[in-house]
Lab assay of single mutants.
Amino acid sequence: TETRTFDSEEEAKKAQKEAEKQGRTVTITRRDDRWEVRFD
């Protein structure tokens, strides 16, 4: 599991799309003013 933090939802969604192309499961969580993206 890898976790990355982004400043914008746009960036988080971009990372999510990339990871899903690779067949990974992605979870996006809102953390205050940041977006946390978890790759499984």
Rank of each mutant, 00 (worst) to 15 (best):
A15R: 03
R38L: 09
R30I: 07
R30L: 10
E2S: 11
D40Q: 11
S8A: 03
F39C: 05
E18S: 06
E2T: 13
K14F: 12
K13S: 07
E20H: 08
K17D: 11
K14H: 13
R30Y: 10
I28N: 01
D33F: 03
D33K: 05
V26W: 00
E18R: 07
E9R: 03
E20R: 07
T29H: 09
D7P: 08
D32E: 13
I28Q: 01
T5A: 07
E10Y: 09
E18P: 01
S8G: 03
R24G: 04
D32R: 07
Q22W: 10
R31N: 08
T29E: 07
E20D: 04
F6D: 00
R38T: 14
R34H: 13
G23D: 03
R38D: 06
E10I: 08
Q16K: 12
K17N: 10
R38V: 12
E36A: 02
K17G: 09
R38H: 12
D33P: 02
F39N: 04
R31P: 02
D33E: 09
F39G: 04
K14G: 07
R24S: 06
Q22L: 14
R31L: 11
K17A: 14
F39K: 02
G23W: 03
G23K: 03
V37A: 04
S8D: 06
F39L: 09
D32H: 10
E2Y: 14
A19E: 06
E20N: 08
E2F: 13
E20T: 08
R31W: 05
E20F: 10
F39D: 07
K13I: 15
S8L: 05
D33Y: 03
A19H: 05
G23N: 04
E2A: 10
W35V: 01
K13W: 11
E2N: 11
K14T: 11
R34I: 13
W35P: 01
K13Y: 15
K21T: 10
R38Y: 06
E11Q: 08
F6Y: 14
T3E: 05
K14L: 14
G23V: 02
F6K: 00
D33C: 07
R31G: 03
R34G: 14
K14S: 11
D40L: 13
T27G: 02
T25M: 09
K13E: 08
V37N: 01
W35S: 01
V26M: 02
A15W: 15
Q22N: 12
E2V: 14
A19M: 12
R24L: 14
E11A: 09
V26N: 01
T5N: 06
D7A: 11
T25R: 15
E11R: 03
A19T: 02
T3V: 15
K14Y: 11
R34A: 10
R24T: 06
T3R: 08
K14V: 11
K13C: 13
S8F: 04
T29Y: 06
K14D: 11
R4H: 10
E9Q: 05
D32I: 05
T1V: 14
T27N: 05
E36N: 02
K14I: 13
A19G: 09
R30S: 04
A12H: 00
E2R: 11
A12W: 01
G23Q: 03
E36T: 03
A19S: 04
R34Q: 12
F39S: 07
R30W: 09
E18I: 09
Q22P: 03
K21M: 13
D33A: 04
T3N: 06
F39R: 02
T27C: 12
E9P: 04
Q16H: 05
D7Q: 08
E11M: 07
T25A: 10
R30D: 02
T1Y: 15
K21S: 14
Q22S: 11
E18Q: 09
R31S: 06
E11D: 11
A15D: 02
S8T: 15
W35M: 01
T3W: 13
K21V: 09
T25I: 12
K21P: 02
A12M: 04
K21I: 10
F6T: 01
W35F: 05
E18V: 08
G23Y: 04
R24V: 11
I28L: 05
D32Q: 12
V37F: 02
